[in-house]
Design a protein around this nucleic acid. Sequence first.
DNA 1: AATGAATGAGCATTCATTCAT
DNA 2: TATGAATGAATGCTCATTCAT
Lengths: 192, 192, 192, 192
Amino acid sequence: MTDSQTAPAARRRRDPQRRIEEITAATERVIAERGIEGLTHRAVAEKAGVPLGATTYHFATKGDLIAAALHSAVDRYAAYLQAWADQRPDLSPEQLVILLTDALLGCFGPQRDQQVMEFELYLAALRRPALRPIADRYIELSIQTLTRYTDPVTATAAAVAMNGLTLRGLAGTHTPTRADIEAILRRILTTP
Amino acid sequence: MTDSQTAPAARRRRDPQRRIEEITAATERVIAERGIEGLTHRAVAEKAGVPLGATTYHFATKGDLIAAALHSAVDRYAAYLQAWADQRPDLSPEQLVILLTDALLGCFGPQRDQQVMEFELYLAALRRPALRPIADRYIELSIQTLTRYTDPVTATAAAVAMNGLTLRGLAGTHTPTRADIEAILRRILTTP
Amino acid sequence: MTDSQTAPAARRRRDPQRRIEEITAATERVIAERGIEGLTHRAVAEKAGVPLGATTYHFATKGDLIAAALHSAVDRYAAYLQAWADQRPDLSPEQLVILLTDALLGCFGPQRDQQVMEFELYLAALRRPALRPIADRYIELSIQTLTRYTDPVTATAAAVAMNGLTLRGLAGTHTPTRADIEAILRRILTTP
Amino acid sequence: MTDSQTAPAARRRRDPQRRIEEITAATERVIAERGIEGLTHRAVAEKAGVPLGATTYHFATKGDLIAAALHSAVDRYAAYLQAWADQRPDLSPEQLVILLTDALLGCFGPQRDQQVMEFELYLAALRRPALRPIADRYIELSIQTLTRYTDPVTATAAAVAMNGLTLRGLAGTHTPTRADIEAILRRILTTP
DNA sequence: AATGAATGAGCATTCATTCAT
DNA sequence: TATGAATGAATGCTCATTCAT
């Protein structure tokens, strides 16, 4: 170990991977706060604490920033689902209804901004074909996770309904109640 | 009678209501073509064939344009649903599955651009609380219509699932097949 | 004279034609000083003492600025030629040689910057087809003027040779001498 | 012999002279395609297939690139003139008129882009004194070549007239006809 | 009421240039 | 020697907005 610890500040340069991750995270935060229409290279640079040139250097266009943020969000979602399901290997339909309702309600609380951000990223794919493969993965992850507990058709029905419910709660004037959500999911996931 | 009835065509000027409708329709067309991020007073003025000042005069902010377009889209949707249901007063669950599937598939064909526009308008409510009452009406209309044929919980489940399915088809790489949609709607609307 | 002199500063607004001319003149000055590659809306705005928006408002693109400047230069050249020839209705070939030589030598003195600017404007037409009709007029004016004194072929030969000579003097290391120019023009304009 | 002489092809790296020539040639191609205002180190690097650093390493500034390209163009022109004249050791004035006209017309055909590039390089000397000695050589080469066939004054007159004619054809809306050019050159080169 | 001229802030993007390796 | 990562200044252009008419 010749001189490692020295030059803490002057060093640090040249860790492109780290920079890219910082910029991506800052992109997500900017979108969460101001929406995609408020996303600019400048805002990202400021939020990430990097020079303006660093954002355009690593992400030449706004589309590149959005793609990176969507990718990051999907990766995070995949890890979340994995952990969620791994901790709950066996669930009855009724248990699933209760737990999914609980998870869904969380989207309207403190996580609201992040949830809106993820929706905005997802919806950016409406106009940007390059994002569609990543958007695909988003919804497929939900379906695959639910398929651990039920048949594929029911899993898909539940996944798209949850998406629709979330959207309704975020875009409408009032959030759905626990009872509403439970009733809907119970209608889809349980067989009378 | 000094001058009123004369010059029916040359008059025409000074019909503010008509102007407002022209501008609203042009706003929808602009969003359909370029997305909400491409919506500007200038683009609307050009598309509507009115002076720039006319757009800012009647719709001071971009949010006003969006609200008017969303309102218009919801009104049109309401009329469509009304006519659809009036022509089909009685439907069995299985008939409903078939017909809703058919209607849903239409969103991915030539109507795609308009469908994307309506989604963009709906999603604008995520960031614009003023739009949420109008967005509410959008989804409630679907639910109310389905309630003509089934219980409220099932109707809501079907409505949000259809929304989620449409989004999935528009934001993903491939559109769902008729068989996919039918299976999902059958799972929700019919009781085994 | 009711109230003319009042409000000298607050007035002045709303004289678009005047503004356009100021901006055009400033464009020529900027090109004279920094070349076409130094031409920017900002530089013109500063030189003309108008807001930046005024330049982009009246001349949306850089090409528009260049076209206006070229137009202006050609108009000025036309007026100059007209006056020059009107004052010299009859010239013998030898007189023409002497006077043209004298005029040509002027391009290498204090007028050099303006001459370079006019060449740069003329040459911008190499890459911008929209400028070519104006560039045409430039050279045709010279030919037409010389045609007052000699046959068309000789006039054209003299005009293009003078252009080539000017270019040679401006782009090379040393300016041609009076004797050089006289010899060349005499070779073209006089018949032995 | 560990590694020195081996791998004649795989080596190839480290041939600075070759690199410089490749970059120079790429510079000419970039200017031919996009003009001097489109000349950037990046564009040259891409066109030459070399790393960006290679262009800034060998040619620190844009002016250096231009100088190299002008030098290259002049060298090529010199070789062309040499060969042209060597193949035609004796020409009557009338023969010269015909052949020069033919050569001149070629500038407006498929060679147009290259001709425009050479003019742009030549004209860059208007603003860049460092280029003027090279620009001098350009025009002197033409004069010297013509001096093989006629007296110096006539040769110079013909050379500058040809330059002016070419410029007129390239910057104007229509190219001169063969008859036009012949008439002008005949006026200059032949004695009645 | 209605218009469009006018303004200046702001953005994506491009680049020359620097510098660590 | 040679490379390309990194920087920040600069530009054309677009627009929301204001305001005189």
